[in-house]
Nucleic acid binder design. Sequence first.
RNA 1: GCGGAAGUAGCUCAUCCGGUAGAGCGACAGCCUUCCAAGCUGUAGGUGGCGGGUUCGAGUCCCGUCUUCCGCUCCA
Length: 509
Amino acid sequence: MLKGDDAFKKIIAHAKEYGFIFQSSEIYDGLSAVYDYGQNGSALKNNIKEYWWKSMVQFHENIVGIDAAIFMHPTVWKASGHVDAFNDPLIDNKDSKKRYRADVLIEDHMAKLEDKINKEVEKASKRFGETFDEAMFRKTNPRVVANQEKIEAIRLRFVEALENNNLEDVKKLIEDLEIVCPVSGSRNWTDVRQFNLMFSTQMGSVTEDANQIYLRPETAQGIFVNYLNVQKTGRMKIPFGIAQIGKAFRNEIVARQFIFRMREFEQMEMQFFIRPGEELKWYEYWKEERMKWHTSLGMPNGLYRFHDHDKLAHYANAAADIEFAFPFGFKELEGIHSRTDFDLSAHQKFSGKKLQYFDPETNESYVPYVVESSIGLDRMFLAILSQSYVEETLEDGSERVVLNLPPMLAPIKAAILPLMKKDGLAEKAREVMDNLKYDFMCSYEEKDAIGRRYRRQDAIGTPYCITIDHQTLEDNTVTIRERDTMQQERIHVDEVKRVVLERISFKNR
RNA sequence: GCGGAAGUAGCUCAUCCGGUAGAGCGACAGCCUUCCAAGCUGUAGGUGGCGGGUUCGAGUCCCGUCUUCCGCUCCA
């Protein structure tokens, strides 16, 4: 694995040149922070999904998979907290170039005024020997009354402006209150702009009747709203998990670093439903399990690390990231969160439907707690790609670029190569190809010198090259060349399928 | 979003002070045949990111715009 900016650029160039990742709508100059997966990229991505899905759903009897829709009832996002957390009116100070949430600036200002009042009241209470509340109630000080009225007036304007989504008023309020930038101390503000991190669209073709709906900003809610359906129909017993792979959308202000942060991205996640009070035990369990999954890919040590969160999200009582050493540094690849009963309780409240589980062991009903594993598929793709990209100098001084992919993830498992076109070698190679292509992804190439074809396969990470030569015609043996060692062995044609399948199997990790 | 830099063939780049674009590699077709890229012949591929302006004339100067990169900012 290469390091540094230079390496990252090479990997991006390689990804494009060999059909892994293209910029979206490239012939129209592209669309910012949106990328398409090409012929090899989509194959690699699908293989990552399959590996994850099998290790979750197929290898665990108590985990099942679903595929929820991207569109969901708008109230889902009120219950989840996204409508509040993802809608920010922002304002920039032109002098300091700092950006603030306009509502926070105003709230801070009100807090300062309130602080003033409290100090006045406190003084009064000491003077008259009253409690704080008594002093407040008497409103002895006219300045206190004036300030309280002022705050109330601000709050009214503020709430009204926000409710009507009147951003000009919000700005005017900031100007009227003479709020200054804490950094530059100036009042040179830009207009207030609404940044909505959720994409929205209308459902219903008649404009007046249409409801605004969102493209889901996370896949988790599709699992939570189906919790009861799956638990009942699958007769699931706690603890159990629901897994899902799917697209999510976030209108990031700045989306950059190739496919690391995109506006449209794919998540692979599993929500594990447990008994309240056992969440930390399961949290630790899944942290270890998930780390094992990553290291089972055979990546070198030291590429992964845990990062425990100090600042917890509104839904979590414990959270850690698994970080990966990307070419641009250690960054989040996966999150493991103890989400408590936040989501199910919220949906219970907003929907009015009971989302509880009767535990036959304890004879109790409760809203289950949740431990979540959520991994960015595109980030996983980037992690594997960047760690697999190797530039080698061979003994003879020549260079080659190899994608050192785990064989089971490689887009193409075997390339079938006749040493040359004539003498019936091509026909024989076709025969071999036809016998293999139903079992794993194969590629056939007869153009160019054999060495060149090996290098091309190296560049897309094909683990095995099957070469048909003159000896094949005599004794039905072929050579099988291994990508990383470049070593060849001669085996019988009938053995090829078994040998390749064995070496690309999940079981042999 | 702000500041800086860049955008010419699939890729890497050239084209001097403004005079209607060129190479290497790659691709494709054919020849050759030698198990680790760069043998031979031929062919295709560009309204110079896009739009506008200045000029007799713009890849080249100016403005706008899109995209990318670097820094800042943002990222429950």
